[in-house]
Amino acid sequence: MSSRFKSFLYSQDKAPYVFICPFVLLFVIFFVYPIISTVIMSFEEILPGQVEFLGLKNYEKLFSDRSFWIAIRNSVVYMVLTLILLIPIPMVLACILDSKLVIGKGFFRGVFFVPVLTSVVVAGTIFRLMFGELPGSLMNRVLAFFGHEPIKWLFSYGTGYTALLLLAVWRWTGMNIVYFFAGLNNIPTELYEAADIDGAKGLQKFRFITLPLLKPSRTYVITISVFAGLRMFTESYMLWSGNNSPHEIGLTIIGYLYRQGIEQNEMGYASAVGLVLLVLAMILNLSQLKVSGFFKKGDSIE
């Protein structure tokens, strides 16, 4: 190796660029470029070999498109409900599993984490069969045990969403528990000892030490959950075995993007849908981070 090359590698002002080069390249090629071309495509109609500039027509159509609003409503409702379920439950479970009182901690941690490792496709298919409409399906047998008539689970909004949320809770609780574990481990034990000396009870310790100090973890989990909720697609696609569901109850924003872009060959229109999703997710996440004080100096997430 020549010495010039060596000195280049060891130089303090140039070498860092070499090291971040792979990331920057990947970022530009697979992220910046697609986003820019999506923005351009959203103003166009795209067919093989013939691209036509439409101006704002795609967006005008979008805002008077009822299916699109159904998709937005479904995605937002799903996101809000998953936030309500998937923040408190895993947080409490993490605290319980972290306490010294529980026996078989390792076993329970494993049990909660196993669903995370399963494929959504497999889980979705199994949930579809469980929530089948015939009297023989698992959930209808449970109902029959309580003397209730069989229900067509996936044909109406309430019961369909129950299935969808159960799937989400079953699948993501374990992951969120792991995030909260990490947060719990960062809380210094001295604080709890001090609280013990002051005579604090278990619940008081949870309320005044654990909850406030878990804030960074919570901010992180909320941020990723907001986006995961908005971009949900596979779960509903598998549960209704396809992108079509009765009364469009399973139609999400991504599902609508897929329908327009892939199923109906309207790439330009689908780009517009995608950009609206991006804007929506950005607004929600940035305002959430702002409220939680993420951007304030000196109060950063560790």
Binding site: L47, P48, G49, E263, Q264, N265
Partner: peptide, 12 residues
């Protein structure tokens, strides 16, 4: 069901 998508514009 997919055939019409390919008939949009100039068929390939």
């Amino acid at each position: 069901n997919s055939f019409p998508n390919f008939m949009k514009g100039v068929p390939q």
